[in-house]
């Protein structure tokens, strides 16, 4: 049995009856209505509880939770810069390790969490993240993927999907919007051969919280990739973000899975997949796409999903 499988073999999950009441990330933050990032982060924090140190990258979730002298954090939290949260958490974890060993403190069970947006994770902070994963620090990394740099005004990132119109990949006469395919961050994390990688969505809160809890039980690095709708940047209604998130899973755009000790495990198989056009229709960032474009994207999504099923050993 691998490290991760061993650590979670007696894991008992959350369900709607045993939801923890604790709110380490409290209301009163300044996120937009319907923000998928803050929703996912709140669910994650409920799963982790309060014996945790949180390291934040610059981005929406830093800005909206920490306007001095207010803070939405009921747990220790530190923000340093945009691209270095994985290095900051490495330092925190190492400090706890050294101080516990030297008898300067007696706090052996603290969980260390770092989070960043997709820009912070897949672009400017990928080096620091790779370093921290490779060195094997005992921490959880959460990528809050809203598929663009939202904090600075909806610029494209390498996690923006093909065809999405952003302020630096605008749709126009000679442009379909984003002209590259979304970077596969979970696969990059898996390539580091860390014990645990998972994808999750705030539309499936129990699944998300269980994955966070497992990540906290597993020694070594864990990478979690959260699909996080941004009504402001995706141009959908604030009351629609959970519906969009659910549709992303149901249309195979954002499949939910775990990679435990390198083994892919599908979290839920999409029985009757919805066409991607339904998902696109809810978001005005895709409204310029033609039927042919949508067809081409659908083929790519189908192929990617088939590939994933194969990795998970699930029949198509």
């Amino acid at each position: 049995m691998g490290i991760a499988a061993e650590a979670i073999k007696d894991f008992k999950g959350f369900n709607l009856k045993n939801m923890p009441e604790v709110e380490p990330l409290s209301s009163g933050h300044r996120a937009c209505q319907g923000c998928g990032e803050i929703l996912a982060l709140r669910q994650a924090m409920k799963a982790l509880g309060t014996n945790v140190v949180v390291c934040s990258a610059t981005g929406c979730m830093e800005i909206v939770t920490s306007p001095f002298p207010q803070t939405a954090w009921n747990v220790p939290w530190i923000h340093v810069a945009f691209e270095n949260t994985s290095a900051v958490v490495s330092g925190v974890e190492a400090a706890y390790k050294a101080m516990n060993r030297k008898g300067k403190i007696n706090q052996p069970d603290v969980t260390f969490l770092a989070y960043g947006g997709d820009g912070s994770t897949a672009d400017i902070g990928i080096q620091a993240l790779s370093g921290a994963l490779e060195r094997g620090h005992n921490f959880i990394y959460i990528c809050l993927d809203n598929e663009a740099y939202m904090n600075t005004g909806i610029q494209r990132s390498s996690s923006t999907p093909w065809g999405a119109s952003t302020t630096t990949s605008p749709a126009g006469k000679y442009s379909k919007g984003q002209s590259t395919w979304k970077k596969n961050m979970p696969a990059i994390a898996v390539a580091h051969e860390i014990p645990y990688v998972a994808t999750a969505s705030p539309a499936y809160p129990v699944d998300l919280m269980n994955k966070v809890k497992k990540a906290s039980m597993i020694p070594g690095p864990a990478y979690l990739h959260f699909y996080s709708p941004c009504p402001t940047g995706w141009r959908c209604g604030g009351d629609e973000s959970v519906a969009v998130a659910r549709l992303a899973v149901q249309s195979k755009v954002f499949p939910l899975y775990e990679v435990i000790d390198g083994q892919y495990v599908l979290s839920r198989k999409v029985a009757k997949p919805k066409p991607i056009s339904e998902y696109f229709k809810m978001q005005r960032r895709f409204r310029h796409l033609t039927e042919t474009d949508v067809q081409m994207i659908q083929e790519r999504i189908d192929a990617e999903y088939a590939e994933l099923l194969k990795k998970c050993g699930v029949e198509a």
């Binding site: 390291c55 290095a87 490495s90 330092g91 400090a95 101080m99 080096q127 370093g131």
Partner: peptide, 22 residues
Amino acid sequence: EFIPVESEHSAMSCCIGSSAAG
């Protein structure tokens, strides 16, 4: 703990995390 970081940018970032942790 000797952290063999992947860059000086991360060296100082680790130092901040470590010092902030006490």
